[in-house]
């Protein structure tokens, strides 16, 4: 059963083409990885899916879609005194969610309750990433959009975040759309992969379509070394 249908999606900024004719489907409880070089339009695709920028084409979410979104980063002025609790309260208030939800969500991402009193602007990038995950999970979403969930955290945290994500997918029957740079994780966790470089270069099961040729075409340079590096990495942390 489809949870998202995208047909002929194009985005232009001041007549510059950022995305052109992108079409794909996401089945319920599937995990879709979106890969591509910097500037390929991955984050723009998410913005279009969330309806925050104008686009041409068709984006159809299932009627019961409740979307949680984890942005790549949040630009906050360091002096802003907004606390973590106040930040999370905004969504709890808007969605009329149960405030007690936060406690269990903090456990899921392995953060202490005491973090709630700290200013959001003073968190480390890893802590902020986890708080953004907690924020996304408030209101019990059935679809999660992650924009490079591990871009700003160190490798052990990266593993943990992916494990948490995988665990959440199973436990909460989530559909996930994940932008990722890490091909080893795409092979391990994604049911489908979408290759973007302004245009759609491939869409399908990773093991079937991610050939060296496709990757060379996508990134413009051989990716062998990169893949090798990351598989080694993952191996070390599994031990």
């Amino acid at each position: 059963m489809k949870v998202l249908e995208v047909k002929g999606l194009s985005v232009r900024f001041d007549n510059a083409v950022v995305l052109e004719n992108v079409s794909f489907n996401v089945e319920r409880e599937d995990s879709l990885a979106i890969i591509g070089p910097n500037g390929a339009g991955k984050t723009v695709l998410f913005r279009a899916l969330l309806g925050t920028i104008p686009y041409q084409g068709e984006i159809k979410w299932a009627g019961d879609a409740r979307i949680g979104y984890v942005p790549q980063r949040l630009v906050i002025e360091r002096a802003l005194p907004l606390t973590v609790q106040e930040f999370l309260d905004t969504k709890i208030h808007v969605l009329h969610s149960n405030p007690a939800e936060v406690k269990s969500l903090l456990e899921v991402v392995r953060l202490q309750l005491s973090i709630l009193k700290r200013p959001l602007a003073k968190l480390s990038s890893g802590q902020l990433q986890r708080i953004l995950i907690v924020f996304a999970l408030i209101g019990n979403p059935n679809i999660l959009l992650f924009d490079e969930p591990t871009a700003s955290v160190d490798s052990p945290s990266e593993e943990q975040i992916y494990e948490t994500l995988h665990h959440l997918e199973d436990e909460h029957h989530l559909t996930t759309l994940v932008i990722s740079h890490d091909l080893s994780l795409v092979y391990r966790y994604a049911d489908k992969v979408l290759c973007l470089n302004k245009q759609q270069l491939c869409f399908g099961v990773p093991q079937e379509i991610l050939s060296t040729d496709t990757l060379n075409k996508l990134y413009g340079t051989p990716r062998k070394h990169y893949e090798h590096h990351h598989s080694d990495h993952a191996h070390v942390h599994r031990q």
Binding site: R47, G51, T52, P71, L74, L82, T90, K91, V94, G139
Partner: peptide, 19 residues
């Protein structure tokens, strides 16, 4: 104040929260 804070911090997060 909650809606304002969120839409100022991130229009995307605000949108996914239904604002």
């Amino acid at each position: 104040r909650h809606e304002l804070t969120l839409s100022i911090l991130s229009p995307e997060l605000a949108k996914t929260s239904g604002i």
